[in-house]
Design a protein around this nucleic acid. Structure first.
Lengths: 113, 113
DNA sequence: TTTGTTATTCGTCTTTCGACGATTAACGAA
DNA sequence: TTCGTTAATCGTCGAAAGACGAATAACAAA
């Protein structure tokens, strides 16, 4: 309770394209977080705290994963007292998806599916 | 020089789908590695040690990034004495690409581009 | 055989991640 | 106001990532 925490990543505006892509990938770089996104994909819209139950980790740990996903912009959380309603924001995946698209295109050019 | 190192990730066969996806994402979760892949995309095929020069990190560090990419199957390195010739293996990106595809599809279903 | 060229491994260090329990926050309901 | 419910934060700890220089490996060429 002394100083500011300053947990920020770096303003998106000053990020290189590589950094943008890597940042999104980093948000996906944990099985639990992938599982959270898949859960949100399956059960269309928002979910309360049963994400915690679904992935089987401690509530605090899950909350941390949700924070990371939120910070990366991949999910959105709307408060609906006393719970929070999470939903996907697939648009945030675009830079990474575009990069993968390029790689796939090169695969076609080089005739290696 | 004492014991085995055992740096393995875990046999792909026993990996859950989430783990597979997360593992690929983890390999992409560093700007330098994204940059390496982009370089290989641009200059069609393999490159020697000028990857080191391109990304501006120490040779040993770069070698480590290349190892990670290789271990994830994203690149292939053929030795061409005295150098090594790297090339992309875009097929290894498939599981991640498929996942992003699903998310994009859900975006269309929900009318949020 | 010695020399030169490039890639990799080793050892070390600092920083970040991931997990947890405990605590705190933020309210609606009673 | 007090109570109950759910989320988020804090503090801690071990494990892993990331960076580097130094040392080593693996040959082709001289």
């Amino acid at each position: 309770m002394s100083a500011v925490k300053l947990r920020r990543e770096r303003p998106a505006s000053t990020q290189s394209p590589q950094e943008k892509i890597a940042q999104i990938a980093k948000a996906l770089a944990h099985p639990a977080r992938v599982q959270i996104l898949q859960t949100l994909l399956r059960r269309k819209t928002c979910i309360g705290c049963d994400i915690v139950e679904e992935i089987g980790l401690a509530a605090s740990t899950t909350s941390e994963h949700l924070r990371i996903l939120k910070e990366a912009g991949l999910i959105i959380g709307e408060i609906e007292r006393p719970r929070v309603c999470y939903s996907l924001n697939p648009a945030a995946l675009k830079p990474l998806a575009a990069f993968l698209g390029q790689a796939a295109a090169s695969a076609i050019r080089n005739r290696q599916v």
